[in-house]
């Protein structure tokens, strides 16, 4: 009986230890802080960067067109 109890005690300690470790392993990245709101910020920035880069490429095309049609006007 004593042995079983000691084994049980050991096991509970062991299990607790695992959970404790899990809590420590939890990556407390800054990105996961504040309820992961920075993930939303990253996504908005990605969309804005993508569309802005696209706008710059469009701008370049318009500039080329203006250059080609420049002397006539």
């Amino acid at each position: 009986m004593k042995r079983i109890l000691s084994i049980l005690a050991f096991l509970t300690l062991f299990v607790q230890n695992i959970f404790a470790q899990n809590n420590e392993i939890e990556m407390a990245d800054h990105l996961r802080a504040e309820g992961k709101i920075y993930v939303v910020v990253i996504c908005i920035v990605i969309i804005l960067l993508g569309l802005l880069a696209y706008l710059f490429s469009l701008d370049k095309k318009v500039k080329m067109l203006e250059k080609n049609s420049g002397p006539k006007n």
Binding site: K36, I37, V39, V40
Partner: peptide
């Protein structure tokens, strides 16, 4: 949608947390 999407209330869900707001940016794409 950007301002209200960041400020208005959303359901409190586990794992998702605040990233549920991505619904307003990821899905419309």
């Amino acid at each position: 949608s950007t301002i209200a999407g960041l400020l208005l209330g959303v359901p409190r869900l586990a794992i998702l947390n605040e990233t549920i707001r991505n619904l307003y940016f990821h899905v419309p794409m």
